[in-house]
Amino acid sequence: MIVLKKKRIRISKNSLIFIIVFVIVLIAYFGSSLSKVRNIDVKGVNDLGAQQVIDATKIDDNSTLLNILIHHKSISKKTERALPSIKSISFRTRNLRDLTIDVKEHPTLGFIYKNGEYYRIINGGQVIDKKMSSPIGNYPIYSNFGAKRLKKMSNIYAELPSNVKTNVSEIYNSPTKLNPYRIKIDMNDGNKVIADMRTVKSKLKYYPGMAAQMKKKGTIDLEIGAYSYPFKDKK
């Protein structure tokens, strides 16, 4: 018969005192004002405002770091629901008093104008249901687009060369009987573009070179072929 002997776990007096003191300090810390958030730093925001993110998290100077760390997943989900343009959000602490909120945003692909208000468009053509009195940043305005075509056009815009994207001011859905895919584009440099949604991505890369050769502001027609002509002088 094998007899198993119980091992005795011995804790030294000094170790026991240290553990007790540590627990007391921990309880005192989380029970005092020192455990409350002192400063909040928001990292990674581009089109969103830092205060906008803080407001959505519901974190203020009465919030404790322990509560934030314990409930960080639910806080993240609530914030992402309040601000759909947020792709992900995480929290980390500094100095046991300060909080850093790291944010990753979905890229903004422009704005659509409806009923006197602007609405942000993010990847996949998703329209954020939050009214804005004016657009922000250097993004295009989409006009006269239905949901399906808006999704397609915004995805096309996302894949344009950066030197072309920054010059796009407004994109109009402008179909005709002969070409239901026709679009018109106002450029920030004063020129206008006529194009076909099916070929605009491949053809717009030639825009900078064509615009540089134009002696006057005018229209660059990329619908069939590629040529330009100046605006008619107003009499």
Rank of each mutant, 00 (worst) to 15 (best):
M1P: 13
M1T: 13
I2F: 14
I2G: 15
K7A: 11
K7I: 12
K7H: 11
R8E: 10
I9Y: 11
I9E: 10
R10Q: 15
I11Y: 13
I11G: 07
S12G: 14
K13D: 14
S15P: 00
L16W: 15
I17E: 14
I17F: 12
I17A: 15
F18Q: 10
F18T: 09
I19F: 14
I19R: 11
I19D: 12
V21L: 14
V21G: 11
I24D: 05
I24V: 15
F30Q: 06
F30T: 07
G31Y: 08
S32D: 08
S32Y: 03
S33K: 15
R38Q: 15
D41H: 02
G44R: 12
N46M: 11
Q51L: 12
V53I: 05
D55F: 07
D55R: 09
A56P: 00
K58T: 08
I59D: 04
D61W: 09
D61G: 12
N62Y: 07
S63C: 00
I68P: 07
L69R: 10
I70N: 11
H71W: 09
H72M: 07
S74P: 02
S76F: 08
T79I: 03
E80R: 13
R81G: 00
I86D: 00
K87E: 09
F91A: 08
R92K: 15
N95Q: 11
L99Q: 01
D102V: 13
K104Q: 11
K104M: 07
P107C: 05
T108G: 08
L109V: 03
G110N: 03
Y113A: 01
N115L: 04
Y119K: 03
R120T: 01
I122C: 01
G124I: 02
G125L: 07
Q126P: 12
D129K: 14
D129P: 09
K130L: 11
K130M: 11
K131R: 12
M132P: 05
S133W: 09
S133Y: 08
S134Y: 12
S134G: 10
I136F: 08
I136C: 06
P140E: 03
I141K: 07
I141G: 01
Y142C: 04
S143E: 12
N144G: 11
K148D: 10
R149D: 15
L150N: 05
M153L: 02
N155Q: 08
I156C: 05
Y157S: 00
V164G: 11
T166F: 11
E170I: 04
I171R: 05
P175H: 06
T176C: 05
N179M: 08
Y181H: 15
Y181E: 10
I185L: 03
I185C: 04
N188M: 03
G190C: 02
N191Y: 03
N191R: 01
V193E: 02
M197Y: 06
M197V: 03
R198V: 01
T199L: 00
T199E: 06
K203P: 00
L204F: 13
K205N: 12
Y206C: 11
G209S: 14
G209R: 13
G209K: 13
G209P: 00
A211Y: 13
K215A: 13
I220K: 04
G225K: 02
G225I: 00
Y227A: 02
F231N: 01
K232S: 00
K232A: 02
